[in-house]
Computed example of a mutant assay.
Amino acid sequence: MEGYKIQIIESLVLIVVLLISSKVLQRIIDKAGMKYTYHKTRIKVIKKVVSLLLSLVFIGVLLLIWGIAPAQLVAYIASLFTVVGIAFLAQWSIVSNITSTLIIFFNHQVNIGDKIVILDKDYQVEGKISDIGIFFIIIKVSENEYVSMPSNVFMQKMVKKIRQ
């Protein structure tokens, strides 16, 4: 038991750091969501993604504390990414859409409720952003018509925001 005392203390400190980091990140996401008036479901999804990433880092550090060699951990993570990469290769657009949604959430000029024009030479879309989901941007073009656009396509288009 005496040999594990340092590892137990380090693990407890890591748990405290995880809890504090989680609360701080949750507040930052809440503030960003309120500042840019994002829909509650969008904020909830971002919180889940951040929580998952934080948990993965926690598990990795915990494994290092309890004696897993860094080389073994790197080999395991590389193998895991290889398998996941091959699994998602056929579904690359899914990963692209999720990444695009995160970028739109934190760095794009448009918000839900903004009136926009998507400048495209083939098919110009004008309307109001109704929702920004994980995979799609929903644009209300008329009273009963909506256009659904994949997030990665939205990121590639020029968007003109119309002041209301």
Rank of each mutant, 00 (worst) to 15 (best):
E2P: 08
L12S: 13
L12R: 10
L12T: 11
L14S: 10
V16Q: 00
V17F: 14
V17I: 15
L19K: 10
I20L: 14
S21G: 15
S22L: 10
Q26I: 05
Q26L: 05
D30C: 00
T37W: 06
Y38I: 10
K40S: 06
I43L: 01
V45K: 01
V45Y: 01
V50T: 15
S51M: 00
L52T: 11
L63V: 11
G67H: 09
P70H: 05
A71C: 01
A71M: 06
L73C: 02
L73T: 01
A75W: 03
Y76W: 14
I77R: 04
A78G: 12
T82R: 02
V84K: 05
I86K: 05
A87F: 13
A87G: 09
F88A: 04
A90H: 07
V95D: 05
S96W: 04
N97Q: 10
I98H: 09
S100Q: 09
I103V: 14
I104Q: 04
I104S: 03
F105M: 02
F106P: 00
G113I: 10
G113L: 11
I116E: 04
D122R: 14
Q124D: 01
Q124I: 04
E126P: 00
K128T: 08
K128Y: 02
K128W: 01
I132P: 00
K140P: 03
V141H: 00
N144K: 13
Y146S: 08
S148H: 02
S151E: 04
K157I: 07
K157G: 06
V159F: 08
K160R: 10
Q164I: 03
